[in-house]
């Protein structure tokens, strides 16, 4: 374990790779969230065709291996659809996002089903449109249930980003391979230092993702308790009934 600290130049190289890793993560997360929400809602549609399409997508996205999907995106799709100049980074994000959407949709679906039926009934009684019911009543409550598994899912996508090095994107992992080649050329035999460093980077990002989702959960939970200052002018001091919960 002699050299756990790498050289400054090597860190600079890693930073370049990190940027690619993070942008793949960002794009696929964005696509994944959009797909999760829309397909998750579609899975509960009263229209059989819509439901069927959503189900086929979910089965496909969850059934296929993300590495094979990535290779299909990078090598087969551009030829089949005739765009040889497509951005590899976007194609890779598309593959990972499609993958995430399949799992995310099932999470969203389960969370929507977990919101008590009375909530929907009350919003029907208030004559909200189906979209308004979803937007103002059901989804905000489902979100509380969605967040924890979505944090885990995002970490799975982070892990998946390492795969893009296999389709020649210079992400963190690809940079590691390059550094390793340089090391081998310089007859450096110790591999531990380099890999402990890169594993730590992934680990730290994963913990950051964890933390962000925890914060979001806590922010959501705060919506379930009173909000001082929201209403400046009330008749009297709004202090009563602190212990009135029953």
């Amino acid at each position: 374990m002699e050299d756990l600290i790498l050289s400054e130049g090597q860190y600079r190289q890693l930073l370049v790779g990190l940027r690619v890793t993070l942008s793949v993560l960002g794009w696929s997360f964005l696509l994944g969230v959009v797909l999760s929400l829309s397909v998750g809602v579609m899975r509960l549609s009263s229209n059989r065709v819509v439901r069927g399409v959503a189900l086929v997508y979910v089965e496909f996205a969850r059934g296929i291996s993300s590495i094979i999907l990535l290779f299909i995106m990078a090598y087969a799709i551009p030829i089949l659809f005739g765009f040889q100049q497509g951005s590899r980074l976007l194609l890779a994000s598309l593959a990972l996002g499609l993958n995430m959407g399949g799992y995310g949709a099932e999470i969203v679906r389960g969370s929507i089903l977990a919101v008590p039926k009375g909530q929907t009934e009350a919003s029907i009684a208030l004559n909200l449109t189906p979209f308004q019911r979803l937007r103002f009543v059901v989804l905000p409550q489902a979100l509380r249930i969605i967040l924890p598994p979505f944090g885990n899912l995002t970490i799975e996508i982070l892990k998946g980003t390492a795969l893009v090095s296999l389709i020649a994107l210079t992400d963190l992992m690809q940079v590691v391979s390059i550094i390793r080649q340089q090391q081998l050329a310089n007859q450096v035999s110790d591999v531990t230092g380099l890999f402990v460093n890169v594993l730590m980077i992934y680990f730290v990002i994963a913990q950051v993702i964890n933390g962000v989702f925890r914060l979001a959960e806590r922010a959501l939970d705060r919506r379930f308790s009173s909000r001082p200052g929201d209403l400046p002018t009330l008749g009297g001091p709004a202090t009563a009934a602190a212990g009135a919960g029953g």
């Binding site: 009350a122 009684a125 208030l126 919506r223 379930f224 308790s225 009173s226 909000r227 001082p228 929201d230 209403l231 009330l234 008749g235 009297g236 001091p237 709004a238 202090t239 009563a240 009934a241 602190a242 009135a244 919960g245 029953g246």
Partner: peptide, 24 residues
Amino acid sequence: AEHANHTPGELSGGQKQRVAIARS
């Protein structure tokens, strides 16, 4: 009136039902 900012979790059953009536 003084409970405008409280969420349902902070209200008693009778208060909740009165809010529900007001909502309707």
